[in-house]
Design a protein around this nucleic acid. Structure first.
Lengths: 210, 210
DNA sequence: CGTGTTGGTCAACGCTTGTTGGCAAGCGTA
DNA sequence: TACGCTTGCCAACAAGCGTTGACCAACACG
């Protein structure tokens, strides 16, 4: 038994552990395809069903393997979620954006991320009912969103507060549009969402206190 | 077996069915206290745990009765949720508010509602992972939030869209503050939240398209 | 060729879940 | 007092859950 699949693994460690698509130092294993299939199925199920209803049995069925393989490779369900919730917001794409364009760019960036990576929906669905999922969201917010906001925020000590305000608007729209499927929110064109939300985010980012 | 506890009851019907605190036409039953205890325990559990983890057994334990009583009075778990998710946003309090104050009043109203009625947290927690819960949220949005927005919105045909934008901001803040417990969102004073969000909501409510 | 490691299946475990039906005690009314 | 409805508990059911360990086939390497 190797050191992988520890009892309570850290998300990024597990995620970075075996990434079949990335050329890492270790030589590839025959099981990389299976690992990837499990992870893909897990992301899909967590995004569609949340933590409790995304059963290991269903994930294994989707991946075309036995449930016990999930346990062997990811330790337990918690470890599987930790691996499946690894996400890169690609926030570095926003670092060179001039301050006055930041609102629109932020909104568009996250709408696109949300539509192309179901992991975000999964994190939200899980984070709302599962403490580990909520902690994961707080981590991502702090580590990936925080620095970007701090980089363009006029007063650095206000950056967390302003980041939270921005998150409230962007997460709220994602919630209404991609999770709750509120009809008028779903019907909006993407450009329309950007046009409406961008000034809000811009104000949260850099305006003086109201 | 009476006509109560139908197989798939409508939320409001079930909720209005037996409301021990309200003087209804039917004369009170000895079991009204038990019914109320079940409902209170259910609201608490749904708000704290979401749909799956709020087990009938746990709810019954909290209410100090046998799980089978829950089934007798509410038919099944879905019926229990339907009854427990009955909610009054008290939107009529906002009907006489002048348009230019509406943003601030809306934000403050919902913050207070959220802090005093855990049913809202329950609906959000359940709505994110359970289709019946999502449908319930769409209903409440349409029937209770819609009319208020339509009442002050300059162009009536734009009311649903504008209501969705407002919901995205208010639900987003509630999500960050009361569900995900994002630290900077939790640390904000209530007046601070109102000061920041009110202009946003005001713009979504009545400003021209951006 | 033989041997150890890896990838995978299978059957079962202990537990929890929603749900059901039977039975006893309490109450209201005739 | 006697009868019927109501309220409640108890025990059990079938199904599904996460998880485990035994076992087999295929590969890698000396």
């Amino acid at each position: 038994m190797a050191d992988r699949a520890a009892s309570v693994p850290s998300p990024d460690a597990v995620a970075a552990d075996r990434a079949p698509t990335v050329a890492s130092g270790a030589r590839p294993r025959r099981s990389d395809a299976t690992r990837a299939a499990i992870l893909a199925a897990a992301r899909e199920r967590f995004a569609a069903d949340g933590y409790e209803r995304a059963t290991i049995r269903a994930i294994a069925r989707d991946a075309g393997i036995d449930p016990s393989m999930v346990m062997r490779y990811y330790g337990n369900k918690e470890g599987l979620f930790a691996a499946a919730s690894a996400i890169d917001l690609r926030a570095e794409q926003l670092e060179a954006v001039p301050r006055e364009e930041m609102g629109a760019r932020l909104v568009r960036h996250f709408l696109e991320r949300w539509e192309h990576d179901e992991t975000l929906t999964g994190m939200l669905r899980v984070g709302v009912t599962n403490e580990a999922g909520a902690e994961r969201m707080r981590e991502v917010f702090r580590d990936q969103m925080g620095p970007v906001i701090a980089g363009v925020c006029p007063a650095p000590e206000e950056a967390p507060k302003r980041a939270a305000l921005i998150a409230s608007q962007i997460l709220g729209m994602a919630l209404c549009r991609y999770v709750l499927h509120l009809p008028p929110a779903v019907d909006l064109e993407r450009d329309e969402v950007v046009a409406w939300l961008a000034p809000t985010v811009q104000r949260y980012l850099a305006d003086a206190h109201p």
